[in-house]
């Protein structure tokens, strides 16, 4: 069967223009407006979660644990050890919450993306815009938490400044993969699996104690998970323990971003621009 007689230079299958209108900021602006109108209180509460953990675990539990000796031989307080871990976790939680539950709701109930994609917006605009918002939110949390750390004297090195972009990268990775996974899920039951994966990752990724407590096979398993890379990266920066393995951590997240964005864009296009 002939589909068309006229020349069709840019079929939707290959045309970049159908994917991206260069207008992700309209999507970001929509989220900011929604935050202002609807859920600023929820957003604000996200700042306090890691602070509470830091106070309860760092000072409460920390008074029993005492100081830790790092592999470099340096001795640091327990609070200074877990604070960067909590910072990475808050980046993960903020990004994942935004890119899973929020995205799931907009996808299936708000029909937001369906409406957006009947305009000149493309699926990559939607993905980038939504993820930028998650990043912006994560970035604000990170700055706030780093300020708290600074005030408490838990930033032990000048390189702590670089923890802000590091946290943004962690959030970018999690948000991209989170949105990609969510775009394939159809029921609330499937969404529960997200929590099932997140909680153990939070507890076991060397957030609260060094990885060396585990037998070696478990260590490798943890090292394969994304959060460990984030915790190590941020901890190295705030404690001032810099080494080349940080490039591996960064690369891990860059891969997550690329894979996540690719799947999200492909899936949104398949769902709404068949």
């Amino acid at each position: 069967m002939t589909t068309t007689t006229a020349p069709a230079p840019v079929r939707r299958g290959g045309g970049v223009r159908a994917l991206y209108a260069g207008n992700a900021r309209a999507i970001l602006m929509r989220s900011l407006t929604a935050t202002k109108s609807s859920n600023w209180a929820v957003v604000l509460s996200g700042f306090f979660e890691p602070v509470f953990y830091l106070v309860a675990m760092g000072y409460g539990l920390g008074s029993f644990v005492g100081d830790l000796t790092l592999p470099t031989g340096e001795t640091v307080s327990y609070a200074a050890f877990i604070a960067p871990g909590l910072l990475a976790v808050s980046a993960m939680n903020g990004a994942v919450y935004d890119s899973t539950w929020n995205v799931f709701f907009k996808l299936h109930f708000g029909k937001l993306y369906q409406a957006q994609l009947t305009t000149s917006i493309g699926p990559l605009d939607v993905a980038l815009g939504e993820i930028s918002y998650a990043l912006l939110r994560g970035g604000v949390y990170a700055l706030g938490f780093l300020t708290v750390m600074q005030v408490m004297g838990l930033n032990l090195a000048w390189s702590a400044v670089a923890a802000v972009p590091a946290v943004l990268l962690v959030a970018f990775g999690f948000a991209s993969v989170g949105m990609a996974v969510t775009s394939y899920l159809k029921t609330f039951q499937q969404m529960d699996w997200v929590t099932f994966v997140m909680l153990p990752m939070f507890l076991f990724s060397a957030t609260f104690y060094p990885l060396s407590v585990y037998p070696e096979p478990i260590q490798w398993l943890i090292k394969a998970m994304p959060l460990w890379h984030g915790v190590e990266l941020v901890r190295g920066l705030t404690l001032g323990v810099l080494d080349p393995s940080m490039y591996v951590h960064v690369a891990y997240y860059v891969v997550m971003v690329v894979v996540g964005l690719t799947f999200t864009t492909t899936r949104l296009r398949a769902l709404f621009l068949d």
């Binding site: 589909t3 068309t4 069709a8 840019v10 079929r11 939707r12 009947t118 305009t119 000149s120 621009l273």
Partner: peptide
């Protein structure tokens, strides 16, 4: 052709 010019068409609908 909508298959080739989706965004241009959608911007005018």
């Amino acid at each position: 052709d909508p298959d080739a010019h989706g965004p241009e068409i959608r911007s005018q609908l």
